[in-house]
Every structure is written in C-alpha cells, then in structure tokens.
Design a protein around this nucleic acid. Structure first.
Length: 156
DNA sequence: GCCAACGTTGGC
DNA sequence: GCCAACGTTGGC
C-alpha cells in the first residue's frame, strides 16, 4: 500500500464536499499534469491512503483522510467534453491523454495540520509539499510522514 | 492581488 | 532541439 498527498482548492472541492457525495466518492477529474497522471497510472492502487490537502486558501494544510477507491486509473471523461474547462482537443477516445482515479472519504482530522506546522516539524522536513516551488497536485508521501501527520491531526 | 517557480507551447 | 513567451499554481 502506498501513501499520497492530494491537493484541492476548498472553494472548488473541499473535504466536506467529498464527504457529502453519494457513496462519499468522487472521480478525481481535471488532473492535467503528466507527472501527476503518471502517478495515478503507474503507482496508485485501490486502498492507497491519501492526505487530503486544502490549497489556495486562508489556512493551507492537510484537513483529513481519503483513499483510492477505483481499481486503477481510467480515462477522465472531461477531456472529451468540449463544454468542460478540462476539454483537451488532442485527446481521443482511442487515445485518451488524461486519467483519473476515484477518491473515497475517510475522515476529518480533529485538528487540521497546517502547512506552517509541517514546516516547523523536523520529522516532516523532507516532505515534498514544503519543498520550494513544488506545485504537483498529487505527491507521493512516505509512510512515516503519513503516520506522523495523522498523529498531529489527532487521527489514529 | 502579487509574484516566484515551474510547465507547456510553438516558432525557428 | 532550443528557448522565449505565455499560462498556471499556490503561498503570502
């Protein structure tokens, strides 16, 4: 099993939104970065654990947990939809360019683990999310880091 | 709203 | 294949 950090802007789609979806599940569409896509395609498996991170907001940080709920990555339907913001004219059904996975809600942390807390904690100094210029919306996370974030967040 | 950092595009 | 121009991300 692997561990991930996935970013979302809470104004667009928050952990609350994921919790209130039917089945507490959501296809994670709109990923348009090759590195992030390759993580989904090559490395993600059903049951992988996810730190759900709120970005571009007042208090950026990990607000809770989710998990990968699809067996594998599959084509993101928004790439074929000319009305979608995520439409990609170069993608075809025979040769889809973009993939997604389903995400399932697990829990809210008792206390969100803020970006500044992560920066201040020496044990988390190697996390990608605090590396300068790091913008990837899907990042691999080491197990020890995952567990420590959970501990700070008050989630076993 | 600003802007640094980074990814992508496209002319050559 | 280079690289300037442009667009996006995301903290502040």
């Amino acid at each position: 099993m692997r561990y991930w950090l996935m970013k979302s802007e809470p104004d667009t789609f928050s952990l609350d939104d994921l919790q209130s979806r039917p089945g507490q599940k959501e296809p994670w569409d709109g990923i348009r970065n090759y590195q992030a896509r390759n993580f989904m395609r090559d490395d993600m498996q059903k049951g992988d654990q996810v730190l759900f991170y709120h970005s571009n907001c007042k208090e950026p940080g990990v607000v809770g947990l989710a998990e990968i709920a699809s067996e594998a990555a599959y084509p993101d339907p928004t790439q074929f939809d000319s009305k979608s913001d995520y439409f990609d004219p170069k993608a075809t059904k025979d040769k889809p360019r973009w993939l997604l996975v389903d995400l399932r809600y697990k829990a809210h942390f008792k206390r969100p683990v803020t970006l500044s807390q992560i920066r201040e904690e020496p044990k988390l100094a190697d996390m990608l999310v605090i590396r300068k210029g790091q913008r990837l919306s899907i990042q691999p996370v080491e197990k020890a880091h995952y567990e420590h974030i959970c501990k700070i967040g008050g989630q076993k």
